[in-house]
Amino acid sequence: MAATTNTMPAGTSRGAGRPPARAKARAGGSRRRRNAITAWLFAAPFVLIFGIFMLGPLVSSFLMSFTDFTSRDIDNPLAVGFVGLDQYAALFRNPQFLHSILNTAYFVLAGIPLTTVLALALAVALNNGITRFRTAFRVGFYTPVVTSIVAVAVVWRFILQPDGLLNLILSWVGIAGPDWLNSTTWSMPALILLAVWRNLGTLMIIFLAGLQTVPADILEAAEVDGASAWQRFMKITLPMLRPTLLLGTVLLSVGFLQFFEEPFVMTKGGPLDSTLSVSYFTFNQFGFGKYGLASAASYVLFVAIALLSLIQFRALRSKD
């Protein structure tokens, strides 16, 4: 928890707080108090739902990670034993958990650059390369984002069969494709392919919006000065797009670190745990009834996400 609260304060306090207003509030008296009550009434429905279904579970999960809570303790949660950091120690001695960390890292390190580069190429092509059918292309590339992973998994499992559509297409160019989902080597690349396909559209839209902020007159001036299209892209567009690029990768890495649905619907984490992610490991522990261990694993993931966001935002701010 400490790690997370630290990541936000600068931005949030600037946005939400108005210190002078506080001083005024003190002077105000009963009218101020009535206004505060009104404000809290406006916030009340959200605060109730947030408190019960989000904040409460977030805190309980933290507390649970220091206990030996199992599914048998649901009826009497206060009777569980306090075990300190034992669950965390057990976690880092668990070879399956360590394997899941490596798998998640593989997925993130391969998936993010791939998605980012492809999305950027598409965004630039749509923004600068063509003048017609932009909307049609945008809709086409974005369609995978809106569709249910479960439905999509059905057809992808079918396409990825050893004698399925993908391998048929590969055979046209002389490649003998593997049995994607049943190979410890190729199952992860197959899931990365699926994730890139599903996330490309979102990132492309974010980059397209960012490209609009690159002033056309600067690009034109550079063109008049004889800069080639590639030089203009590298020297003007890319540097001006940096905040958008970093933001896109932060959003994507927060999502990719939680990598779960793709293996859940495609491979069940297999074969031989080769697609078992940290989220999936956590979900399995929950299924086995080991709630304490599951909570500890989920907090490790939470801290990793918070740290990564912090590092990326620091990098973004320091160079601006």
């Binding site: 949030t12 947030f50 309980s60 939680q258 709630y291 989920s298 907090y299 939470f302």
Partner: peptide, 22 residues
């Protein structure tokens, strides 16, 4: 507002178990 912002980063699996218990 700070709580709202923090919650944006919380992975789904963190609240999953206690939510189910609840």
């Amino acid at each position: 507002f700070l709580l709202v912002m923090v919650m944006l980063m919380v992975p789904g699996v963190v609240t999953f178990v206690p939510l189910f218990v609840l």
